[in-house]
Amino acid sequence: MDIAKYRNLFLEEATEHLSEMSRSLLLLEKESGDGEAIDTVFRMAHSIKGMAGSLGYDSITELSHLLEDRMDLCRQQGRVPAGEHGIGLLFRGLEGLERLVGFVRETGEPPPPDEALITAVREAPVEFPEEAESGGDPPKKA
């Protein structure tokens, strides 16, 4: 396999996907039940996962897989919850993928994993808060 050719294809296509993901997350920040935007983020994560897996970029594969699973939950629930475990986490995931793809662009090497982010996405609650309460995370006790 011509790694350099595929690396360039990956960088080009992943960058487009991340831009599209960003646009869709901005839409979801305004309208949490935008089904088309949820579907787009799911597909972009899925596509990045497939490409990264083919090149052995395991850290990108793992993070995009977790985000894809997260978006699958959102598809099932019909919305992206607000707050740090909802839309906030997806924006963190997007930024994480941008950093990892940036590492590949700068070094040409597989990027090291972002363990803290992986843990945060993996351990995010699968039960979404009720919509009426989804304007933010529950207030902390004084």
Binding site: M1, Y6, L9, F10, E13, R43, S47, G50, M51, S54
Partner: peptide, 13 residues
């Protein structure tokens, strides 16, 4: 496939 990367890879295989 929506990814040209994947289409190219299949073609090359």
């Amino acid at each position: 496939d929506d990814a040209s990367f994947m289409r190219q890879m299949i073609r090359d295989i």
